[in-house]
Design a protein around this nucleic acid. Sequence first.
DNA 1: TTCAGTGCAAAACATTTGCACCCCT
DNA 2: AGGGGTGCAAATGTTTTGCACTGAA
Lengths: 147, 147
Amino acid sequence: MVTLTDIKDKLTEANLKITHQRLVIYEALLKCMNHPTAEYIYDKIKEDNPSVSLGTVHKTLDKFVEVDLAKKVLSTDHLKRFDANISKHNHIYLENSKEIIDYHDEELQQIILDYLKKKKLNNIKIKDVQLQINADKIDKKLSVSIK
Amino acid sequence: MVTLTDIKDKLTEANLKITHQRLVIYEALLKCMNHPTAEYIYDKIKEDNPSVSLGTVHKTLDKFVEVDLAKKVLSTDHLKRFDANISKHNHIYLENSKEIIDYHDEELQQIILDYLKKKKLNNIKIKDVQLQINADKIDKKLSVSIK
DNA sequence: TTCAGTGCAAAACATTTGCACCCCT
DNA sequence: AGGGGTGCAAATGTTTTGCACTGAA
């Protein structure tokens, strides 16, 4: 559970001023598990905060990425997507349901990093790795189609 | 390796007409190892094919994805990027130079798939995995900055 | 000949930028 | 009080769309 104080501490740590907009945007990003776009966040918060502008949401999310309060998520649509979960984790792309879900696995991360370290790739310095698992969701309910 | 005959066959299979534009665009996509955008392809081909329009490049690339002649590539910029290489491979995202390069490694792919098979993830059917390696390019030349 | 494919230009979208004003520290 | 942060609107950049025309089958 993340409290308002936690968020404020994070902002202070990052040398960012504590503003109403940043708190609201960060809170919305935390709540949203589906790797939202700036526009999605904007829609979520504007009911309770009608004065916040879309431009600010963009700038704020970029700032969060800059100071490691959030991460950019890869996607095949041409949208910038964000994630408040900055711990190392992998993404499962469910192709049939279009969802992107998180998959945490410290052991797997380590196996991959160790393997790559042995390989000694030239001219690049690895910062981190992330696994993209492409899968289909299996629905437990029997689906019946009628012609 | 995909040849010009292969693409003609694929187009025919998919009930698509074989047009000059499609052949030129596919050829450019094959040659281009850097996961180009529609605009990049357009720039490459327009010298020899000044009449081809950017809109057609977009439509054609989307069509290729539809019929499995190409794949969309995940990216963190908000651009649609494509790849003619539809075989299993990993991507190295060079953050400082903004490049996306291919990294083939059968052994690593197998290690990861074996690991995940042991884990028995519930409710999803894994189709394939792709590793995203985030790294910085190390420039061999000394860079000197002058104030 | 026919209609999928194309070129063109406008529209739709998403993101960035510039600048005056605001408000956190 | 100062300067980072914000709102607004315009600019930018990319993709999509509509429609008349073209050319592959």
